[in-house]
């Protein structure tokens, strides 16, 4: 299973590098090309006869269906990009899947209002009586990935989360 996921990640990265090569030949107004794709997991049988999952473009998504959102940031300049932070709202009509946000080399924070971001457990919401409690994952409205290291020229940063259609 773990092997399956890592091969999916590798496949995504290869795809992105191809896009970077294409984008490099075009005039780029900014230093980062940001791309969002929506995909769903599809079970399939490998050549070894094992059942694995692969990501295919979001298809036949109905209420209850899970979508994998993948954001890639490619540095197309010749200078490092520092303090890179990707913000992504949880789309309308969708509910964030707990613990699904991931991104190599990132600190991940969440928000329930798009303004105040905090790691899970540190994010609180106010009850009607003014008291505070820890926000639940399904209440997250925004996700922020903050990259610990600078994004070097020609390299690609990667952030992903899953959400379910309400």
């Amino acid at each position: 299973m773990k092997k399956g996921i890592s091969s999916i990640v590798a496949g995504t990265l290869v795809l992105v590098f191809a896009v970077v090569g294409q984008a490099a030949g075009q005039p780029a107004a900014g230093c980062i090309v940001l791309k969002t794709v929506a995909e769903v997991e599809q079970p399939y049988t490998t050549d070894d006869g094992e059942t694995a999952k692969r990501l295919v473009p979001a298809a036949k998504v109905v209420p209850g269906g899970e979508v994998v959102w993948t954001v890639t940031a490619s540095n197309v300049c010749d200078k490092p990009a520092e303090k890179v932070a990707i913000d992504n709202p949880v789309p309308d009509h969708m509910r964030y899947v707990p613990d699904s946000a991931m991104g190599p080399g990132t600190d991940i924070a969440f928000s329930v209002d798009g303004r105040k971001f905090a790691p899970p457990g540190a994010l609180t919401v106010s009850n009607a009586d003014g008291s505070e409690r820890t926000a639940r994952a399904e209440e997250y409205s925004h996700i922020r990935w903050t990259f610990k290291n600078a994004l070097q020229p020609g390299s690609v940063a990667f952030a992903r989360f899953r959400a379910v259609v309400k």
């Binding site: 900014g30 940001l34 969002t36 998504v61 990009a81 520092e82 890179v84 932070a85 990707i86 009509h93």
Partner: peptide, 17 residues
């Protein structure tokens, strides 16, 4: 269902759009 991410970053210490 629509989704759009935003990236903030700096180059040479200068905050980019």
């Amino acid at each position: 269902i629509n989704n759009r991410a935003t990236v903030n970053f700096s180059v040479n210490g200068v905050v980019q759009a």
